[in-house]
Design a protein around this nucleic acid. Structure first.
Lengths: 210, 210
DNA sequence: CAACAAATTAATCATTTGATTAAATCAATT
DNA sequence: AATTGATTTAATCAAATGATTAATTTGTTG
């Protein structure tokens, strides 16, 4: 076998081409509906090369899935563990960061939702979100805000579900929203941009409600 | 051909058995990952009977999908067009109705999201949500509440996205939430039950925020 | 019961699809 | 140029899969 670094340029070029094609097709259609031939065509390579570089459709998928999941979730985990930011600041950063990210890659949320359904265990146990979350700065700050009477609902899961839901749900329901309202893509995205300002205001109001 | 009513009992029995099995498997795995043999096994019938009664996997799927979609969406459309209820009452009814419904059939939201991705046009154009929505009582009530200064954000789409998102998102993200928090199903459902009371309070607070 | 249509089954088909193989090409090294 | 190993291709395989067919069973009607 050739050592990777001796032919790195070419390796990266072909291997990366396949990976990018796979990402695109998997994002759009999901694992079950994706044909390895679709990926090969999208990448402009011979079908056998896919198996040459990645052994199987499943293996290739797992690479894409793991990269996507960790990129998407670790993002928020890091922000939630920032000691230097207030709870309020965390909210605005998460909202703004996620909305921008999802507008760039709009298929990711639905991709994650769809594929985790088929295999909840495998993928979730790879990522140590459980421990990281339980000891997060966010949880401590939330707890304190509850103690100080600034937040009514004591369960931080509601806070998180609401925050992420308000951000992500419109993208997941995008086809329904666009179809049901007649909005075009540009108008939809403008609506999402508005939410960068609106969601933090809403969250603040919700959490104080009783 | 025998007329349907002459052998109705048996027809319904077998045909319905297949449909119920199809619903179950499609809900769980989605169209692409479902094998007609899975459905046949689940229904306890011979594979050929599926095609005998429904002509093809696609046709059978479309029946299930249409029933599911209209059941799920028409539900809210009707509530939104009730002249006799206030905006506030509409919120509590939608929240309560949907959460109960989804706890009974937890795979529906993800099923809809997944399958509309593969075919946004076909299915949405079958349902006349566009017209019904634009002229809904809800829209008028919302408009009035904005004029009266009771609601800050004038776009009713934000209202709807927030309401439905707060209800539905936790179910869509259920595997992630349960995996990330360690909650068991029963605890998760209790959390959802809490939200029947919480969401209306939150919505009210959000809509008045500025 | 005879006759006929409907319902059901077992067997099979044709395609699709993920994967492999063997040969060909390319690129670097001597 | 010859050698060697990595990369790429065309052809093909075997299994899976949606669908059909032909025969059998069941049920109804005259």
């Amino acid at each position: 076998m050739a050592k990777k670094n001796e032919t790195k340029k070419l390796d990266i070029s072909t291997e990366a081409k396949i990976k990018e094609a796979a990402r695109k097709v998997f994002y759009k259609k999901g694992f079950a509906a994706t044909r390895t031939r679709d990926i090969a065509d999208e990448a402009g390579i011979n079908l056998a090369l896919l198996n040459y570089y990645f052994r199987s459709k499943q293996k290739l998928f797992e690479i894409i899935m793991l990269e996507t999941l960790s990129g998407f979730i670790q993002n928020v985990v890091i922000l939630l563990n920032d000691e230097k930011t207030t709870l309020e600041k965390k909210v605005t950063e998460i909202v703004s960061g996620y909305i921008d990210l999802i507008i760039l890659e709009p298929e990711i949320p639905t991709f994650i939702v769809t594929e985790i359904r088929s295999n909840p265990n495998l993928l979730l146990e790879q990522l140590p979100i459980k421990n990281v979350m339980a000891n997060s700065i966010f949880f401590k700050q939330h707890q304190k805000a509850v103690a100080d009477g600034l937040i009514t609902e004591p369960n931080p899961l509601h806070f998180l579900m609401n925050l992420i839901g308000l951000i992500v749900f419109p993208f997941i329901a995008k086809p329904l929203i666009m179809g049901g309202s007649g909005l075009k893509l540009k108008a939809f995205n403008e609506l999402m941009q508005q939410r960068k300002n609106l969601i933090p205001i809403w969250i603040k109001a919700m959490m104080r409600a009783k």
